[in-house]
Design a protein around this nucleic acid. Structure first.
Lengths: 225, 225
DNA sequence: TAATATCAATAGTATTACTATTACATTTGC
DNA sequence: GCAAATGTAATAGTAATACTATTGATATTA
């Protein structure tokens, strides 16, 4: 699985970069470095200057690839959801039973990545933490409409609509499949943030992955006919 | 109801302001002006300079009340959730049936405010939009732990725990009451953002309030024994 | 009325996101 | 094989903005 995914090229929207970072060595260093540094500092404290120092290049060189740190984060997010969407397609295509298919999908979307088994990329956990901590800062913005126009969110929208389809395979009459899908995707990340910082907003269980269990219970009870 | 609430003083954490804005005329102008302007511009584009121009004072005068726009937003959020918590207490205390109590709570938390009936404050809708659009920017931060230490989120945590208690009144054995509560509170706002900007992530129904309906269905199905 | 405390305005500074320009290196076409 | 074109990177900026230091004005109280 790991090798297979490593060979698949995940396409990311053209509008997110000035020069495709996957085509050069410096580009790769920018991606790898920004995942590490943004996770460490957080989006606000992260700057192109600090990144440049870290990967031994210059601020301006980074600006050759990305016109802003905002777009860089959008690139990372886009790429992450592209990977997840690919995983769901690959790992559920041989499953017949709709319930099993949905169960697997919920696992991929809500569980923490197991670095040994299902990691697509060298630093998936760091990237997942960035998704958890920083996503809202570029999604919930006044610019969302303009960015949506140029297709920045199409990967994410496709993912939600695919999950919604899997939900409707289990219960054809359920009227809110997209809401349920996006609630789970966004909510599971948020609950992990709460667990780490505001545990009173969650119910952490020692014996199991409480986030995955919560959504399994929630979704299958809701879809029960 | 309106008059009653208008007379209730909603306490806001001391650490959020340098000088209590509710004690002076300029303070009130800062609050009212910032709700209007932040809703109009969004948190990023909102600055103290622009606010000062708007309410005909100076940037530095605003800094007498709030040490940063970050803290100002936290103040607004805190005050909002204080109002909501008060409303839930007042409007459910005479309800005997746990199911009816929960239903009312879900309504207060997920429905859009009706300006004529249940508005606490002159510009509740604008404030609600700020909560929807900007909350994540001050909650999901690297500073969350320090701010949590000084009690900035206590109002919110109390609200979640109160709603969790109402959930457990309906089903004493449900193991994730806090998660369900915080998921609903955060999720309902997020779904409204999606509805406005990324409708493919939701399922908007013309005939009813889809957000309230979604959560009523979701929660009561989940709690069914 | 004089001392004191409160409040507000002016004029800054420091940081940071971002850009204009130039220099160097590599590839490509004939 | 050499020049044109393209790709890459470095220097040295600008503009915006969050935030502060200081001084001036007003109100309160002894």
């Amino acid at each position: 699985m790991q090798d297979l995914l490593a060979r698949i090229k995940i396409p990311v929207n053209d509008n997110l970069y000035l020069k495709d970072p996957s085509t050069s060595e410096l580009g790769q260093k920018i991606i790898d470095g920004s995942i590490a540094l943004m996770n460490q500092l957080g989006f606000e404290r992260f700057t192109f200057k600090k990144l440049a120092t870290e990967i031994q290049t210059t601020e301006a060189s980074v600006y050759r690839y990305f016109e802003s740190k905002h777009k860089l984060l959008l690139y990372l997010i886009n790429w992450y959801w592209g990977c997840i969407a690919t995983r769901i397609t690959l790992e559920t295509r041989n499953i017949e039973l709709p319930e099993q298919k949905l169960k697997k999908t919920i696992h991929i979307l809500t569980a923490l990545p197991n670095p040994e088994i299902d990691s697509l990329i060298s630093n998936e956990l760091a990237l997942k933490e960035i998704i958890i901590n920083e996503s809202a800062k570029v999604l919930i913005t006044k610019d969302v409409d303009e960015e949506n126009k140029v297709g920045v969110f199409s990967v994410y929208k496709t993912l939600v609509s695919n999950v919604a389809a899997i939900i409707n395979e289990v219960n054809r009459d359920y009227p809110y499949p997209n809401m349920l899908a996006s609630s789970m995707i966004e909510g599971s990340n948020q609950q992990r943030f709460f667990a780490a910082h505001l545990p009173k907003l969650t119910n952490i269980k020692e014996d199991s992955d409480f986030v995955e269990s919560f959504y399994l219970d929630l979704i299958f009870n809701t879809l029960k006919k």
